[in-house]
Design a protein around this nucleic acid. Structure first.
Length: 513
RNA sequence: GGGCUUGUAGCUUAGUUCGGUAGAGCGACGGACUCUUAAUCCGUAGGCCAAGGGUUCAAAUCCCUUCAGGCCCGCCA
């Protein structure tokens, strides 16, 4: 492929994306015997640590010498002295360099050949400048990596949303609050892992490439295994494999799973997203609501420092207990419709009056209930709220409700109108499961792109017996959105899926195809 | 899929309403400067104005198409 004439956001020339001036400087460094890319640098501490330890220092330099390393973010040259800002993962600190301290040769090398964006290692003594800026009085400096591409402009920085997503490394390098968002994301993931591990759940990895997909209603990605000459699907959920583990005797299992759904991309959907799914034997959906409530409120408290947080101008309260209501109650309370006590004619009339989308397909009271809920209620569930007892038609993997005919023991958690979690008393009657998956498969063959397949191996596993089990899946991207105050999922996914730039490759072709 | 909106130098952008050969700041390059922090001062280079087509004597500007982004709506977590 000829890369040099590719259009797109990354400027290309005969040097690739690199700046010719910087290449020349790198070569000059080498001819002067200075490595551009040395192997190590022994720093004594991080910027944040140094800042904390020398917070009280005055104008006279400390006797203690520090070695710090990081990227240069600004350089202010005053002739025989230079101020620069050095940033590492923990923060930034000002450097003070003088010709008379470094010596003519090193000083000239720094001024002539080191640019903003380069990584350097420095040694010197902390002090506070006249105007009160904690700084490092540097008397030794080495290049640790010569950057060949300029950083964005220093004052405005990088704001272009598209470029931020496409070149996230640049976004991270320039924007501390973006690093903070992803630091939070990491804390959430490890917090979930710790919480479940501490309670005896074992973490497993189940197949991402699946011959039969299932566990959710969604359109899958399809791929081909050449050696097996077999069509495989990228998982839409790990559910059916995790239940196999419960069949096999693991009583508490979880997986932090990347799932793939071949659907639209928007501010709350990315084709690959992260969920945690957890299953616990001898527990039902009530127990899983308890678990979800405790897990999320614990995470919010640990990561955020309190159980209340601001999101989109609203104050969300995560302290348990959370509101729990049946779907029927939710529709009655928020839409004023007592769905199941009204005749079908009245329901159809109400649906017409309120202009409910999809109303023409609803032929039973339960279908109207779901329509009313989705159209009139979901958006109004701002505070963390469990809605439970879903109609059986759209819950093929949930156990029938122990009392209510036509309903399942399923719940969903809503926060600020977003579905955050979904769980149920897991269906473990193998014949019922087979019937319900067959019904799904009929819908699929009739053209429902999101209906499920019959996974006969899963049915076989259930036939062997699965204890009563509760399960839940929690959308971690959305949880991170809540915790970081972002309303776009692209802000909490490091490398969100973007449309390809024209001419940036040959889509869908791997070597040898 | 529908609506609105954006794309100008490496970065941030002015200019688009009312067509007249693209202007700035930062950055780069050259020079001055020993406590600055968007350092300052002097000078230089850098743009087929997202791509393609059309209207016109003349298009960044008007029209059409395409590409990419953002926001809102519909559907999925």
């Amino acid at each position: 492929m000829h890369r040099s004439d590719r259009p797109g956001m990354i400027q290309q020339n005969e040097n690739g994306p690199f700046d010719p001036g910087r290449i020349e400087k790198a070569e000059t460094l080498l001819t002067r015997g200075t490595a551009c890319y040395p192997y190590t640098f022994d720093r004594t501490e991080t910027v944040a640590s140094a800042r904390a330890r020398f917070d009280g220092i005055g104008h006279d330099p400390s006797a203690e010498r520090l070695r710090l390393a990081g990227r240069l973010y600004t350089i202010r040259n005053h002739g025989r002295t230079v101020f620069a800002d050095l940033g590492d993962e923990t923060g930034r600190i000002q450097l003070y360099l003088r010709k008379m301290d470094l010596g003519d040769e090193t000083f000239a090398l720094f001024v002539d050949l080191v640019d903003r964006g380069d990584f350097v290692g420095v040694e010197g003594r902390p002090f506070r400048t006249k105007v009160g800026e904690l700084s490092l009085w540097v008397d030794e400096i080495v290049v640790l990596c010569k950057a060949l591409i300029d950083l964005p402009e220093k004052f405005h920085g990088l704001k272009d949303t598209e470029k931020r997503y496409r070149q996230r490394y640049l976004d991270l390098a320039m924007n501390e609050q973006v690093r903070e968002t992803f630091r939070t994301r990491s804390l959430v993931i490890s917090g979930v892992r710790t919480y479940l591990s501490d309670r005896g759940f074992l973490e497993f990895e189940t197949p991402t490439l699946q011959p039969v997909y299932g566990g959710a209603n969604a359109r899958p990605f399809t791929t081909l295994h050449h050696y097996l000459d077999q069509t495989l699907f990228l998982r839409i959920a790990p559910e059916l494999y995790l239940k196999r583990l419960v069949v096999g005797g693991f009583e508490r299992v979880f997986e932090i799973s990347k799932n793939f759904r071949n659907e639209d991309i928007d501010s709350s959907h990315n084709p690959e997203f992260t969920m945690v799914e957890a299953y616990e034997a001898y527990r039902d959906y009530n127990g899983m609501m308890d678990l979800t409530e405790d897990l999320i409120s614990t995470l919010v408290r640990e990561v955020h420092g309190s159980t209340t947080l601001e999101f989109g101008g609203k104050t969300l309260e995560f302290a348990a207990p959370w509101r729990r209501m049946t779907m029927e109650e939710a529709v009655r309370e928020h839409a004023g419709i007592d769905t199941l006590s009204l005749p079908l004619d009245d329901l159809a009339r109400i649906a017409d009056e309120r202009g409910i989308p999809g109303r023409e397909k609803a032929t039973t009271p339960r279908e109207h209930l779901v329509l009313f809920f989705e159209a009139l209620v979901e958006d109004r569930l701002i505070q963390p709220t469990f809605v439970h007892d879903f109609p059986i038609e759209n819950s093929p993997l949930a156990k029938r409700h122990r009392e209510k005919e036509g309903f399942t023991e399923r719940f969903e958690l809503f926060i600020d109108g977003m579905e955050i979690a979904n769980g149920f008393s897991e269906l473990n009657d193998p014949r019922d499961q087979l019937d319900r998956l067959r019904a799904q498969d009929r819908r699929r063959l009739e053209g429902d792109l999101e209906a499920q397949m019959v996974d006969m191996d899963f049915i076989t596993a259930l036939g062997l017996g699965m204890p009563p089990t509760g399960g839940v899946g929690i959308g971690l991207d959305r949880l991170v959105m809540l915790l970081t105050g972002h309303t776009s999922i692209k802000e909490v996914i490091l490398f969100p899926q973007m449309k390809p730039l024209r001419g940036t490759g040959t889509p869908g072709t791997a070597p040898g195809e």
